[in-house]
């Protein structure tokens, strides 16, 4: 069965996770990463105060109080722990979380992202996005490469509001995985149905092949 774009991205990100990693998955595509972790032992953190998210709960196990940061019901692992919101963000800001996987709207050629304000809508929600950008040891952003109207989300400079100065480590799309170094964009791994030249042409920015 052919994977959807979202699943291609999630599966590719799962490859980046290592045994023993503590990982925070944002809402949307990042949440799907959990499906592809396989046998690797990773500890999923939820910023509302849980380390050790388990598999999706059965209907009869739903507990309205036990939720993830996207407010979806979750189960817990036998080694899980609960803590309050201040402690949880201390864990995030204090570099105790190995990997944060976040959605994004734009990524510039340095790896700065815009992932919180919605275009043409009042900016009234930020949640934990900026804390995760600032504090996780490694930040991987997940998104389809193009917007609905076909414009690339990889841009020369951000047109939407930045999520912080901290540059992300990796941008995983349905076509390729990118990393950044001093304004140079590296197409590290191309696995979709576009060639390096086609990607460069459609994105409209110089890419470097590793």
């Amino acid at each position: 069965m052919k994977l959807t774009k979202r699943d291609v991205i999630a599966k590719r990100i799962a490859q980046e996770l290592k045994d023993g990693d503590s990982v925070n998955l944002g809402v949307g595509i990042p949440t799907l990463v959990a499906k592809y972790i396989g046998d690797k032992k990773v500890y999923l953190q939820s910023e509302n105060g849980l380390l050790g998210i388990g598999p999706p709960p059965n209907e009869d196990e739903l507990d309205i109080d036990l939720i993830d940061a996207g407010k979806n019901p979750v189960s817990i692992m036998p080694d899980a722990s609960y803590f309050d919101s201040a402690f949880s963000f201390g864990m995030i800001r204090g570099h105790h979380i190995d990997v944060a996987v976040l959605g994004t709207l734009e990524v510039d050629r340095y790896g700065e992202i815009a992932n919180w304000s919605v275009p043409n809508q009042p900016i009234l929600g930020v949640g934990g996005a900026m804390d995760l950008v600032a504090g996780a040891k490694k930040v991987i952003v997940a998104s389809t490469l193009f917007t609905k109207d076909g414009s690339p989300k990889l841009v020369e400079s951000l047109t939407l509001d930045s999520s912080g100065e901290r540059l992300v480590n990796q941008f995983v799309t349905e076509y390729a995985s990118f990393t950044f170094e001093d304004g140079k964009i590296f197409a590290d791994d191309i696995y979709g149905d576009m060639t390096f030249e086609e990607l460069q042409d459609k994105i409209g920015l110089p890419l470097t092949q590793k």
């Binding site: 919101s85 201040a86 800001r93 304000s117 930020v126 949640g127 804390d131 600032a134 912080g164 100065e165």
Partner: peptide, 29 residues
């Protein structure tokens, strides 16, 4: 930001007047 909100309240209850956080530096917030 959610972590700033939580820490601001924690400080409020712990006798701390304020704090420096890396979160949101360089943003609209």
């Amino acid at each position: 930001p959610q972590g700033t909100l939580a820490e601001a309240i924690r400080c409020g209850g712990a006798g701390i007047g304020g704090f420096y956080t890396p979160t949101a530096v360089g943003t609209k917030l």
